[in-house]
């Protein structure tokens, strides 16, 4: 297992490079993960998506798909791609300290 040092903490990563333990996560870590993902800053809209993803994950054990994000987070698909370029679901999950969504295979 790979480890990474973020916001003064040593954290274990899973095979996809996401945090192995979502309880290690905090807001400072999210900011550093966002920088790694090429985002300049986390705006309130980013935080709305991140918070929503963590809430779904805690309830259901999996992060939501883009389709569900669009339907339930109040942010449309086009905006999601602006906020988290390339793969919004994958990227937002990583910044939120969650494993890659399982809906991919």
């Amino acid at each position: 297992m790979e480890t990474i040092c973020l916001a003064g903490k040593t954290l274990t990563l899973d095979n996809d490079g996401n945090l192995a333990n979502c309880n290690d996560w905090n807001e400072a870590i999210a900011c550093e993960l966002a920088t790694q993902e090429g985002l300049d800053e986390l705006t309130p809209q980013h935080w709305a998506v991140i918070t929503y993803m963590r809430a779904v994950f805690h309830k259901e054990g999996d992060a939501p798909s883009i389709r569900r994000l669009t339907r339930e987070s109040g942010v449309d698909t086009k905006t999601l791609y602006k906020l988290f370029p390339k793969g919004p679901a994958k990227k937002a999950a990583r910044i939120a300290g969650l494993p890659k969504p399982k809906g991919c295979i």
Binding site: S65, I66, R67, G103, C104, I105
Partner: peptide, 8 residues
């Protein structure tokens, strides 16, 4: 278009 698909 989007995942998941039959027989990926």
């Amino acid at each position: 278009t989007e995942m998941p698909i039959k027989c990926p």
